[in-house]
Design a protein around this nucleic acid. Structure first.
Lengths: 388, 388
DNA sequence: CTCCGGACAGTAAACGCATTCTATGGGCTG
DNA sequence: CAGCCCATAGAATGCGTTTACTGTCCGGAG
């Protein structure tokens, strides 16, 4: 038999469903009123063994005679004993927790990453702390701190960040403190904090994807493409916009400032701003939405304005979340391996402690590939009448 | 000055961003190599006070002279000290954690509820443990246990459940054990576990909503309505189907077994089964999708079959997640206050311990209202040609 | 001038579990 | 049959905080 094996979650040998033996038999402590939560000591007393032995049957990390084990397990059942993870953590065992901080769990971009994190975490027998910043960097900082207090094995911050000096410094400080405690701050889909700051990170190529997309549009004959959405100042927006511009420049297309309309990552923004732009005197034959959600909003506004996609206007998005496949026409976009990013984030953070402790401590940087996926929302320029 | 005030998360007085004072000065322990994580004792030593005093400035729950406080805070800064939540919890302070268990964070039904839970939790200064069962009751049970081990203040299980006897008993057992430890199991959108089992719960009216929806369809002249989707055996499916049948019966419409096509809650199922049904010889003039996601799938299949909604076939969904408003035509559905359910779930579980401890221990049951929201996906029977 | 109470600060005992040593049999080897 | 080693079980110690209890110092009332 092998000991010391932190198992994945689920399918634990199910407890005997000894139906309604409803908590009668309290006989542990010396307290007079209702039953107190029982401890290892109580279990030990009831089984007639020492606390050490109880601990050992609990953790299966040391041989215990079958007969003894059974007595202990019986006592555990009867007492309804549940180990105290805090005490266990305090005694030196990992808390088996990873934290993830996102803008909003409802947004599919974050939801898929969160799913990846959660799956990989529970595969390693860990639980997952999830927090939502609602876009507020102060909350993000506060959450990182709180997760550090709970001694999370890793804290994963997800999505683009603002380039504020004070904020960045503060986050770097926390990264360093986490590192000093053997934990890791993982940057998931956001730029590094600087050479000296000990972090791990999982990246994907925003600039490159955007370049490919705009290049695709250009190749189809579109010269004036409207860039729509994305919070200005956010690294994600900056990078995608950079790729877009580079493609434009490379093909010698003019860069009209009126064609850049950043704002937000929401469907509502996409619809509203698209409608506004349509009312103005801005010429374009294609729309590059900062992400698929914005694209969905734009598509709606386009449709309501009587414009057909792709016959009248071509449209592309970014991220390849489900809505991209569900739209009609199906959206051409850049596929980002969201769930895989989540998985890798916990892997890169944990591989030091789960594997041989001998290996060099890793400051991992994982870079995941993206690729453009061509669907039905782009048509060659020649076939449509363009937009005034 | 008031002491003892657990504050909401965010906007804590920002630490001085004393930029690059990068962890030089290690002088705490006696260990030779790199700095060790510092403890209250280290801080106390450095500030020249006792650990009790440090604890008091940390928790602001006892008067400390201003000068002393400053020295301590300085020491904390310099050491990069971060309190250990495990030790704190062990010493008797609440772990300030709530757990939520869902099928899948990506599904908007769960995502919105999770968002509500997270928001309400962090409003109370708590962090949120999130787990995904992927539909497996065994994993759910395992997660409840794990959260209990971590001494979560509340464990919220979300969504319909199967009526398996062993599973139910096991869950009841855990609910009882949680209760004995002063925590609460919260049933969110699922039927109670029985009179004797100490749980809190947040419900909404599946049966009633479904009744209203089918009644609406019937009123519009539809007599043969296809019920599509929802895992058979799941309480949610059972209840919605029950409401549907009751309306049918009340209006004297015939209940054709062929018109009931349960299966899953996914878009893919909706599309596939809809397409299959269209190929068969089943007459119907309206479709009642078990939820909005299934409705979206069905809409797609309908469109691909050349059938228009609502001219040829009427369609309704359930839950009122965003896709319902985004579909064209906009989907008539039942609005369920998902996010509010999440908020209420943590409230009902926590109101005992956050408010006056005098009040009667509550076994709360909260019932939230739902209402049908009529949009554009249903038309009176007369206007369309029906379906063979 | 003495005594008392208030404002602070320190001491030490939990909190519940893991783990390191140490002790005790019993089976085996030689 | 003596001496050993292995399999097990117990005793004791430490993990980092909080929190009763105890002081101690000081100013003002009597």
């Amino acid at each position: 038999m092998t000991y010391r094996s932190p198992r994945a979650i689920g399918f634990a040998p199910p407890h005997d469903v000894t139906e309604g033996m409803g908590r009668m038999g309290r006989q542990s402590g010396t307290d007079a009123d209702g039953q107190r939560r029982s401890t290892v000591t109580d279990v030990a007393r009831r089984a007639g063994v020492s606390t050490a032995t109880v601990s050992r049957v609990l953790n299966r990390n040391y041989p215990v005679a079958a007969a003894t084990r059974e007595r202990v397990e019986k006592a555990i059942q009867e007492l309804g004993y549940v180990v105290n993870a805090h005490a266990r953590a305090l005694a030196g065992v990992s808390g088996r927790t990873v934290g993830i901080i996102v803008n909003d769990v409802v947004d599919p971009f974050y939801a898929y990453i969160a799913r990846g994190v959660e799956r990989e975490a529970s595969r390693g027998g860990r639980l997952c702390l999830v927090c939502c910043t609602q876009g507020d960097p102060q909350r993000e900082l506060a959450f990182v701190e709180l997760m550090h207090e709970r001694r999370a094995d890793a804290v994963i911050v997800v999505g683009g960040s603002v380039a504020d000096r004070a904020y960045t410094g503060e986050l770097a400080r926390r990264a360093t403190e986490l590192d000093a405690d053997g934990a890791k701050l993982v940057l998931c889909g956001r730029p590094p904090l600087g050479e000296r700051v000990p972090t791990a990170s999982v990246e994907y190529d925003n600039e490159g994807g955007a370049f490919a997309l705009t290049d695709h549009l250009l190749t189809q004959g579109h010269e004036r493409v409207l860039y729509l959405g994305g919070p200005p100042g956010l690294s994600t927006t900056r990078d995608r916009l950079a790729g877009h511009r580079r493609a434009l420049e490379l093909r010698g297309a003019e860069a009209d400032p009126a064609l850049e309309q950043p704002g937000a990552f929401s469907r509502a923004f996409g619809a509203r701003r698209m409608a506004e732009v349509l009312r103005q005197d801005i010429r374009f034959t294609a729309v590059f939405a900062a992400n698929d959600i914005v694209a969905a909003g734009a598509a709606q506004a386009l449709e309501e304005a009587g414009l057909r996609v792709p016959q009248d206007v071509s449209l592309v998005g970014y991220d390849d979340v489900p809505v991209a496949q569900e739209m009609r026409p199906r959206l051409t976009t850049v596929h980002v391996p969201l769930e895989e990013m989540g998985r890798q984030a916990v892997r890169v953070a944990l591989r030091d402690e789960d594997e041989d402790p001998w290996r060099e401590p890793t400051t991992g940087v994982i870079r995941l590939g993206t690729h453009i996926v061509v669907r039905d929302s782009v048509a060659p320029r020649g076939t449509h009448r363009g937009r005034t």
